Amino acid sequence: MSRNIEVGVFIPVGKNGWIHSVNTPYTPGSFQHVLDVVQRSEALGFDFVLSPAIWRGRKGPSRHWMDSLESLTTTAALLQATSRIEIFGTVHMTVFPPATIAKMIATLDQIGAGRVGLNLVTGSSYLDLAHLGLWNDELNHDERYDMADEWVHLVKRLWTEEIVDHKGRFFATEAATMGPKPSRMPKLVNAGASPRGIKFAADNCDIAFISASDGPKFIATARQCKEAARAMGKPNLKTFGLVTVIPGETDAEAQARLDHFNAGVDRECLADIAAGYEQNRSAKALSEASLSLTGGEKQSCVMPGELVGSYETLARRLSVTALEGELDGLMLVVPDYIEDLAAIANRTLPLMERYGVSSLRSR
């Protein structure tokens, strides 16, 4: 069994990235740092980078995400500063009108033709958006996706049709025009893991992101996502796994790094994340994958399913994740986005070919 996959980076546009600890490696949430990370990622051969949409920092001593960049303006700057790598920004469809984003993405395609993509989210954390007046409590979980279906439908029409008349449940246009059109249809991705979220991705997107690892539960979820897409008549939907990787020269050294991060775990930060989901009146409809990121009772400062080990160990475990999960790509989270990304690209990804997985340097 063999597989050719894309590999990308979940870039740290927020302070401390995705490690909820006072012992996090240098990750300031500054543009200069992100620019350095992305230009290095391109030079190392990574296929894409994706930035999240961050509207609120977390309580707690680590000041997690208290400094952060806006995703689409960052995408514009990164497209100008690169030449090959794909750049995905993120938007909350509940915050931005479809015509606004259609125009912005068409403009970004002028900056980096054919390289801009869009990660579409509806928002699950009340606290992340409500403090700025951006939370819409009128829609429940499934209704948010009903709105999202119409949102994407209208955006795609604006990208492809000369005149758009639309009158729907949520949006309306009258003889709308928009030009120039994108040089190609921008890739759309979504990370909704609930049944309704997977349906949205299958109906509207090119890629579904899921939390991934080499454990049986994660593998089963990845396969279920593929099977659900096939059952919906969408066999071409790609699935990319989001994986936290903690590398070291040896398995023991990698584990010692994680132990150090966990020694400084910011429990107040984790509790604050959990509270954001709990105050969503549709919390019961959220996927287990979404809720697992909140911390809750767990003591770990990283997202569940982390892969910890030497560069050789990680090659084997990432290969198992991709092969058994039938994944088309991986998006990596690492502690140190300068040193660790270079080491993974140079020392782990080439070794994956031994296990039948080709990517980056092995292609």
Rank of each mutant, 00 (worst) to 15 (best):
F48C: 03
K298L: 11
D251Q: 12
D206N: 15
Q80V: 06
R354C: 08
T24W: 04
A222F: 04
A201N: 01
G57C: 07
S362W: 05
G168M: 05
I338W: 04
D340K: 07
S211I: 04
F96C: 10
L139W: 03
G264H: 06
E312L: 09
R316P: 02
Y355Q: 04
F96S: 06
G117T: 06
L242Y: 14
V91C: 09
N140R: 15
A81I: 04
L330R: 05
C225V: 15
A130R: 10
S30W: 01
E288C: 07
E42M: 04
T160N: 08
T294R: 10
D142N: 15
L341V: 13
N4A: 15
G295M: 04
D149I: 10
E339D: 12
T27L: 15
N136Y: 04
L351P: 00
G57T: 06
N16R: 08
D259Q: 12
L314H: 13
P98L: 09
Y277V: 03
L129T: 00
F240Y: 15
Y277Q: 02
P61G: 07
T294W: 05
V22G: 02
W55L: 08
R58W: 12
L332R: 03
F240Q: 03
G309F: 08
M66T: 13
M352A: 12
S41I: 02
S51Q: 10
G112F: 00
A208H: 06
N280F: 08
L35Y: 13
A176H: 05
G192R: 00
I101N: 00
K59D: 14
T75G: 11
H166K: 04
T244Y: 13
L129E: 00
N23D: 09
R363G: 10
K226M: 08
T27W: 04
E143S: 02
L120N: 04
E253V: 13
G133N: 05
I85N: 00
S282I: 13
S21R: 02
F240L: 11
F261D: 00
E288F: 09
L291H: 05
L270H: 00
P25F: 05
V265C: 13
S194P: 05
K234W: 00
H260P: 02
Q255M: 13
P52W: 00
V7F: 01
Q224P: 02
G112R: 01
L69R: 02
L349Y: 15
H20C: 12
L332P: 03
F261W: 11
V37F: 05
G29L: 12
A106Q: 03
